[in-house]
Amino acid sequence: ADDEVAKLLVDAYRKNDEDKLEEVKKRYNISDEQVKRLIRKVL
């Protein structure tokens, strides 16, 4: 599931889509710190 979330985050990140990032964060209840970590893992 982590990889799936990471893909969604990276996708939103690449598109610079703040709304999507927020949506994913809320849906999976993850912190900014986790977001950064997941994005770093993929990029």
Rank of each mutant, 00 (worst) to 15 (best):
D17G: 03
L21N: 00
D11S: 05
S31T: 13
K25H: 01
D17T: 02
L8F: 04
R37A: 14
K20Q: 10
I39Q: 01
L38V: 05
D3N: 09
V5M: 08
A12N: 01
R14K: 11
K7S: 08
D11G: 03
A12P: 01
N16Y: 06
K26C: 06
S31A: 04
Q34A: 10
E22F: 07
R27M: 12
L8Y: 04
L21Y: 05
K20Y: 09
N29I: 02
R40V: 08
L8W: 05
L8S: 04
Q34M: 13
E22G: 05
D17N: 06
V35T: 06
V24A: 03
Y13C: 09
Y13D: 01
A1K: 10
Q34Y: 12
I39L: 13
E4Y: 15
D19Y: 11
A6E: 09
Y28C: 03
E4R: 10
Y28I: 01
A6C: 15
N29C: 10
K41T: 10
I39T: 02
S31E: 03
K41G: 08
R40A: 14
R37C: 14
R14N: 10
R40D: 12
Y13A: 03
D2F: 14
D32I: 05
V10I: 14
L21T: 03
V35F: 14
V10G: 04
I39F: 04
V24C: 04
A1Y: 15
K26S: 08
L8K: 05
D32S: 07
E22V: 06
D32E: 08
V24K: 00
K7E: 08
A1R: 11
E33D: 11
L38R: 01
K26H: 07
E18C: 15
D32V: 04
E22I: 09
N16P: 03
R40K: 10
D19F: 12
L38Y: 05
R37I: 13
I30M: 13
E33Y: 06
A12H: 03
Y13N: 01
R37H: 11
K20N: 04
R14W: 13
I30A: 01
Y28W: 07
D11R: 05
V10K: 04
R27H: 07
D11Y: 04
V10D: 02
K26M: 09
A12V: 03
R27C: 06
E22A: 11
K20M: 14
Y28M: 02
A1E: 12
A6N: 06
E4N: 10
K15E: 12
D32Y: 05
L9F: 04
D2M: 14
V10E: 06
D19E: 14
K7H: 10
K7N: 08
K15W: 08
V10M: 13
R14D: 05
R27V: 07
K36L: 13
N29L: 05
N29E: 05
Y13S: 02
E33G: 06
Y28K: 00
V10H: 07
E18K: 15
E4W: 14
L38A: 04
V35K: 01
D11H: 05
I39Y: 02
Q34T: 11
L21V: 07
I30W: 09
Q34D: 14
D32C: 10
Y13E: 01
I30V: 06
R14Q: 12
V5R: 03
E23M: 10
K20V: 09
K20E: 10
A12I: 04
D3M: 11
D11W: 06
L8H: 05
L9Y: 01
Y28D: 00
N29Q: 08
D17F: 04
L21S: 01
N29D: 06
E33R: 06
R14P: 01
Y13F: 11
V5I: 14
V5N: 01
Y28Q: 00
L43R: 04
Y13L: 10
V10P: 00
A1H: 13
A1S: 12
E22K: 10
I39H: 01
D32A: 08
K36S: 09
S31G: 05
R27L: 13
D32L: 04
K7Q: 12
D19V: 13
K7Y: 10
A12M: 03
A1P: 14
R40Q: 13
D2A: 10
N29P: 00
Y13P: 01
A12W: 04
R40T: 10
L38S: 02
K41N: 10
K25Q: 07
K41S: 11
D19W: 10
R40E: 13
E23T: 05
V35Q: 02
Y28E: 00
D11T: 04
V42K: 07
K26Q: 10
N16V: 03
K25I: 07
R37G: 08
K15A: 15
E22R: 12
E18G: 13
I39K: 02
D2P: 11
A6D: 04
N29H: 08
K41Q: 12
K7I: 09
D11M: 06
E33V: 07
K20P: 01
K15G: 08
E23P: 01
L21F: 08
K26A: 10
L43T: 05
V42C: 11
L21Q: 02
A1T: 13
R27N: 05
K7V: 07
E22D: 09
K36A: 13
D3F: 11
K25Y: 02
K26L: 11
K20I: 09
E18L: 15
L8T: 04
E23R: 07
L8D: 03
K7P: 03
Y28R: 00
L8R: 05
D17K: 03
E33L: 06
D2Q: 09
A12G: 02
R40S: 12
Y13R: 02
N29G: 13
K41A: 12
K20S: 08
A6R: 08
K15Y: 07
L38W: 04
D17E: 05
K41R: 13
S31L: 03
N16T: 03
D17P: 02
A6Y: 14
D32M: 05
L43S: 05
L38N: 00
R37L: 12
L38T: 03
K26F: 06
V24P: 00
A6T: 12
V35E: 03
V5G: 04
E4P: 08
D3P: 09
D11Q: 07
E23H: 05
D17Y: 03
